[in-house]
Design a protein around this nucleic acid. Structure first.
Lengths: 334, 334
DNA sequence: CTGAAAGCGCTAACAG
DNA sequence: CTGTTAGCGCTTTCAG
């Protein structure tokens, strides 16, 4: 049904391969024949079949994006950056939600490879076991990992500067005069949250804090933040400031603080991490570490595109993007 | 480099077409030969090339999803529902962000068609001109539209019951004893917001309201809600309740109300529409009309899948999914 | 039940 | 500059 190269060739009285060349404008083709071809293609409303082209060239002009859940605004932002960059280069991206389930993750990877994607963008693969990681490493297409510790794996990585961010948050709070500061982190296996904690602790060492900082671990979610904070209020009444490992935790923390009849920032200062859109909207507006999510998606795709050309697996690239503190109204000077 | 059907055929001593049949389990193949083939495939770690298969069969097992912006939590939720349903059926979905720009939208459509997607899921095409809509209608793959008025176009549609939702909101507020109620809507061209307004007005007619309801139009965003509400507070001081066309507008409204030194729900009740996750988190928790976003994505994909089989264009299907009022704490009885 | 062979629509040498 | 000719890897008649 759809019109093919052969149809255009027939209509313009030249050979099919001439049509191919004329349409793509690679080789020299006589101006007049090219003209004829273009007209015929236009008239017949010719649309190249990218599947066929993909088979012939071995490149699908498609990238795979595996995130845990696109409903997480963090990943939505990354996805948008990735999609824009891909689109600009003529690529498109197929979206997969893994829910952080290793099996689901591998199923998607295999499926994408069968589709011959030219590159794979996924969040950290820390939850994959050795053989699975091996399989990935040897799959033949470039892979870039989001929020993975650079250099640990054989893959390229793009991440925000978590250590610097943690340090920034800690130093800011200390600079405001706080002396008893708590940190609400995620589960210990979350590499990026661990890095934020590390940075924070480093800042604490350099600061005139009176007590060793309290660090609480839990789920890195709104709910988790809520629960950690209830525990905190209960057990550590002297704390005057808290640094949350991410904004979701911070939102939960604020909720818990308000519910306990105390107020932010009068009684307790809080700073988050990520700078989700919501951070500016919530009351009080949240002071937080901005992570360039859109740019991270973008950077990841650019790496992929750069490496997709080479048939030899290229050396992994590692980008760590700068973060900055966005001051709003959830902290006060002591 | 990758192993092909021919490799497996060679390794198992049968013809390539036998391998093809054995692997897919369509036709009868002797159990023993099938066994041999499967073993060889396993041993060589054979992975079918879906591009090649797509070229041969004419089906790509891929769906296109065009939304205005995946960062909009509404679409993220729809996308997730769509992706889950697609995945379940062995399809995958490529994500496109159109920013509601008609040109971008058409570019994506063409690109997806070149890729031979088996179906297209996109938000309303109201902003496309006639020829563009024609092009879509004749493109040869099933299309389902989100939030488009059912039956107006030649396409299938999936939408929430906007009229019922608007009516629900209006009746609820009236039932609470409010007599002067305002509605904050979007631009007039937004068909779904217009439908919500219609439902609301209908409820107002049936209610013992004293004044004709105030309807304000503006941007259907947080910012828009903020601005409409400032105008409202300024010009219509007697209003005691407002129905916002969507949650984003409602959030902006609440913000404006609080900033004006008044409180929700003590001074002013507000109800939203959509039931974004955020609605439960914000203070005060927002009473709103729940729209089954995940299910809408799912339903849309199911239509697509059903129609993708038939070579003849199937008759458009229209699903309007029920909505319900979720009562939280942003409204009070008068 | 299995093999041979003809494509799917396009690209890419290789000749002219 | 243009035509010929092989494929890309898989499915699908059509014979056997």
């Amino acid at each position: 049904m759809p019109v093919t190269l052969a149809d255009v060739a027939r209509a313009s009285g030249v050979n099919i391969s001439t049509v191919s060349r004329a349409l793509r404008g690679t080789y020299g083709v006589h101006r007049r024949t090219r003209q004829r071809v273009l007209e015929a293609a236009e008239r017949l409303n010719y649309r190249p079949n990218r599947v066929a082209r993909g088979l012939a060239t071995g490149r699908s002009l498609t990238l795979g994006l595996i995130v845990s859940d696109i409903r997480n605004p963090y990943f939505a932002e990354v996805a948008r950056g990735a999609e824009d960059a891909a689109c600009r280069a003529g690529y498109d991206v197929v979206l997969c939600n893994s829910d952080l389930d290793p099996l689901k993750q591998m199923r998607y990877v295999r499926s994408l490879l069968e589709k011959r994607v030219d590159g794979l963008l996924m969040n950290s693969v820390a939850d994959l076991d050795r053989p699975q990681q091996q399989e990935l490493a040897g799959c033949g297409v470039p892979i870039v990992l989001l929020n993975a510790t650079p250099g640990v794996q054989a893959f390229s990585t793009v991440t925000g500067d978590n250590v610097a961010g943690g340090r920034l948050a800690g130093a800011y709070l200390a600079g405001l005069g706080h002396r008893v500061i708590a940190h609400l982190s995620g589960t210990r296996r979350q590499a990026n949250l661990a890095a934020r904690a590390r940075g924070f602790l480093k800042a604490m060492q350099a600061a005139p804090v009176t007590a060793a900082p309290v660090v609480i671990h839990g789920e890195h979610t709104y709910q988790g933040g809520y629960e950690m904070t209830r525990k905190l209020l209960d057990r550590h009444p002297k704390v005057t400031a808290v640094f949350a490992g991410n904004d979701a935790i911070a939102f939960g923390a604020i909720r818990a603080i308000l519910e306990a009849g105390r107020s932010v920032p009068e009684d307790l200062s809080v700073v988050g991490f990520d700078n989700l859109e919501l951070a500016a909207i919530i009351r009080p507006p949240l002071t937080t570490i901005h992570q360039p999510k859109y740019e991270m998606g973008q950077a990841a795709v650019e790496i992929l595109l750069r490496q997709a050309g080479h048939s030899e697996p290229s050396a992994p690239e590692h980008h760590v993007l700068g973060v900055e503190l966005v001051e709003r109204q959830s902290c006060r000077r002591l």
